[in-house]
Design a protein around this nucleic acid. Sequence first.
DNA 1: TAAAAGATGATAACGATTCTCATTTGACAC
DNA 2: GTGTCAAATGAGAATCGTTATCATCTTTTA
Lengths: 144, 144
Amino acid sequence: MEQRIERIKKQLHSQSYKLTPQREATVRVLLEHEDDHLSAEDVYMLVKEKYPEIGLATVYRTLELLTELKVVDKINFGDGVSRYDLRQEGAAHFHHHLVCIECGSVDEIQEDLLEDVEKVVEDRWNFEIKDHRLTFHGICHRCK
Amino acid sequence: MEQRIERIKKQLHSQSYKLTPQREATVRVLLEHEDDHLSAEDVYMLVKEKYPEIGLATVYRTLELLTELKVVDKINFGDGVSRYDLRQEGAAHFHHHLVCIECGSVDEIQEDLLEDVEKVVEDRWNFEIKDHRLTFHGICHRCK
DNA sequence: TAAAAGATGATAACGATTCTCATTTGACAC
DNA sequence: GTGTCAAATGAGAATCGTTATCATCTTTTA
């Protein structure tokens, strides 16, 4: 945990941003909820517990900054709010999601799975892939 | 075109909805811009040309209705607006998108490509897939 | 023709996000 | 240390896409 914060701190400094207490508190919340898919409001509520003076705008600004630095990914499951998902350190590709239409749960798939598909797309459509988003909607193992 | 409208009309009737002039004008706009990915506002502007009295709320209601009937798909490329995409008639699966990070263009891939991946997900994660969304972000053939 | 149900248009309300701006903080020069 | 200046913050206003409300209009049914 501390090491990851240290690395994120360095990453910020390398672009001449500072790891302010507010930003650190926000990053800690994200690290502590790595498996969840928190909305900005969720993050705000959780950060407030350890840093009550923080403002909602600062949380938004921090999440935007972390997205820019590719520390988190901003994702959208079509429910009207953006969610923020910590990137796996060193992950070449963005992971995929399984959204259950029964219970609303969101599970992650860390495996790539798309290598072959990407090769086809790059070749056949002459499209240089930089990132991808893959989400499956269906019924999760718990609801079956 | 007329045949497709006729089929959509039947589909509406089968659920006891009517194809009002406003709805028909909206469907026509969607058919005429099949390759685009229009936002509700885009559709509103275009429908107004052929039916100036129409209200924005009606357009939203119609798009919602068409989404429910699976005539269109509501998609989101992360730019803060929902876009509406006509389904290919009889398509078993939702098509994929190539979003260019240079020029913003959106191209479509009608091929499935995910058959193998879906089999893996269904088996390994015990997840019953009902639908999927796959979007690649990168540089399109025109911008390379 | 009357009554009921369905659809519409105008506009108000809403919720998520961004913007504005006065204030505070932190890094660096002296 | 002290002063300076850019960066960051917090509060709340503003914005923007979307949804809800409600009176009016249309269509269907009796």
